[in-house]
Design a protein around this nucleic acid. Structure first.
Lengths: 245, 245
DNA sequence: TCGAATGGTTGACCGGGGTCAAGAAACCAG
DNA sequence: CTGGTTTCTTGACCCCGGTCAACCATTCGA
C-alpha cells in the first residue's frame, strides 16, 4: 500500500509545515509546540491569486486566517464601488479573528494584493480547541486587542491629521519597524502599490504623489520606483512635528 | 457587634446590586447567575462626576468598565488639544476590555459626560476568573468583536461618506434603537450635547447645525432643544439613500 | 515588436467642510 | 430680573484634498 503510505507522509509534512508557520505567527506565540501541531491538524492552506478574494464583507464566516506568504488587503466597499483600505496584512499576521465570537459575518472584505498563501483556521474547529485549551482564547483576545488599538489610532488620524502628517508618520513607522537606525541615513522598499498605501492612509493616489513631491523638494525623501531613501530622518521627524495638527 | 453585621449587610446588598447590573450588561448575557455573583465580589462601583476622567490614553490599566448610570465619552486627544470622540457608552455597555489581554495601557481616554456610575472589573481579578470559567473569555471576545465592527464601520463612514449622510444615518439608527416604528411619525431626545455628537460623527458642531438646518428646511426634522421630531422618517430614509456616497 | 493595460505624476479646477467671529438662546446663581 | 456662562446657530471666508484629464513609464501578452 504504497499509495496510502505516500498520502500519510504528505499529510504529515503538510501538518509540520502548517505548524511551522503558525508558530511564527505572533498570535500563537504563547502556545506550546504540541498544542500547535494539534491545531494545525484542523487547518488548511489556501492559495489565493493576486486580486482573488478570501472573503467578502457580510458573507458567512469560514474561520480566521494567518498569512503565510503574500499580502492581504482588508477593506470596505461602498455601494457605489469606492474602497477604503482598513489595513494590509503580511506574513505572520492574522485577520478575521472577529468571527470566532458569535455567528456573525465578516465586517470587511479581504483580497490578495499579490499571489498569497493563507492558513484557514475554521471557526467550529477552533471553538472546540478553545474548550480543550482556554489559552487559545487569550491568544485571540490579545490579537483582537492589537487590531482594536490599530483601528482607534486610524480613526484619530483620519479626522485629526492632514495628509502630510499621515504620510510622514507612516514613513517614520516603517523606518522604525524596518529596524533602521532612526537618526541616520536609511531606506526601504514599499511593500505595496502606492495607490493602496494612499487608500490605507485615507487619501487618493494623486495626493500621495503630491506629498511625496513636496517631501522630495524639502530633500527629506528620494523616490526611485518602490525604493525610498531618507537622507534626513531627523528632518522628517521635525517636519512631522511641525505638520502635526 | 452591630457594626460588623451592618457592614456585612452593606457589602451583601452592594454585591447584589453589582450582580444585578452586570446581569443586564449584554457582555455577560451568557453567564450563569451564581458565576456573576462571584464575579461581582471582585468588582467595585465608581462614582464619576460630569467631566471627570475614568482613565487617560496611555495610562496603566486598572481593568475594564461596565456603565451603570450616566454616559461615558471615549475619545482621543491630539497634542494640540483637539478631540475625536470614538464612541459614547451608555448604561449596560462595557468599555476598555482591551486591557484584559496583555499589560498594555488604554488606547484612548474616557470621561463622563454626565454624573455617572461605573463598575470596575479589575484586570488581574478578571484574568483569574477566566481560568476558573473560560466562558468569561468568550464574553470578552464577543464584546470586543462588537467594538471592532463598530470601529471598522466608523472608519468607512469617516472617509467615504459626507457629513449629511453620517448625520442622517445616525438619526435613523437612533430611531430604530429607540424602538420606534420606522415608518411613522416619531421622535426622541438627544442623549448627548450636540458638540459631542458632532465630534463622534467626525464633524464640527457648526457643520452639524447646518445639516440640521437643511433637514429642517426639507421638513424631515424638527429641533426643539434636545428634542428631535421626525415628521417623515420615510423621507429621511430616502434622503439618506440619495445622499449616500 | 508593438499595442494595451496598469501604475504613477502633474496641472487645473472646485466644493465640502473647517475656521473665525458675531449673535441668539438657554441655563444658571445671585 | 439680571448679568455671566455655556451651548447653539448663522454668516463670511478660505484651504485641503478630491475629481477630471492629459501625459509618462513599465509591464505583459500576442
Amino acid at each position: 500500500m504504497t499509495d496510502s503510505r505516500l498520502s500519510v507522509e504528505r499529510a504529515d509534512s503538510r501538518r509540520i509545515m502548517l505548524a511551522h508557520t503558525l508558530r511564527k505567527a505572533p498570535i500563537f506565540s504563547g502556545i506550546r509546540a504540541d498544542a500547535l501541531e494539534t491545531l494545525a491538524l484542523g487547518c488548511s492552506l489556501r492559495q489565493v491569486d493576486k486580486g482573488g478574494y478570501l472573503f467578502h464583507a457580510g458573507t458567512a464566516a469560514d474561520g480566521f486566517f494567518v498569512v503565510h506568504a503574500g499580502a492581504i488587503n482588508v477593506h470596505r466597499v461602498t455601494e457605489d464601488g469606492r474602497e477604503q483600505v482598513i489595513r494590509v496584512f503580511y506574513p505572520g499576521e492574522s485577520l478575521g479573528e472577529v468571527v470566532i465570537a458569535g455567528n456573525h459575518a465578516y465586517p470587511a472584505s479581504a483580497k490578495a494584493t499579490e499571489n498569497s498563501q493563507v492558513i484557514l483556521v475554521p471557526t467550529e474547529f477552533f471553538r472546540a480547541r478553545i474548550k480543550a485549551d482556554p489559552d487559545l482564547a487569550l491568544c485571540i483576545l490579545a490579537s483582537m486587542s492589537q487590531h482594536l488599538r490599530f483601528l482607534v489610532e486610524t480613526i484619530e488620524d483620519l479626522k485629526l491629521k492632514q495628509a502630510e502628517s499621515r504620510v510622514a508618520q507612516w514613513l517614520l513607522r516603517q523606518l522604525r519597524s524596518a529596524g533602521q537606525d532612526p537618526d541616520g541615513v536609511s531606506a526601504f522598499d514599499l511593500p505595496l502599490a502606492k495607490h493602496l498605501l494612499a487608500s490605507q492612509l485615507g487619501i487618493t493616489s494623486e495626493t500621495l504623489s503630491r506629498v511625496f513631491a513636496r517631501l522630495r523638494a524639502a530633500e527629506l525623501l528620494a523616490v526611485e520606483g518602490k525604493h525610498l531613501r531618507f537622507p534626513d530622518t531627523a528632518g522628517l521627524q521635525a517636519f512631522l512635528e511641525r505638520a502635526e495638527a
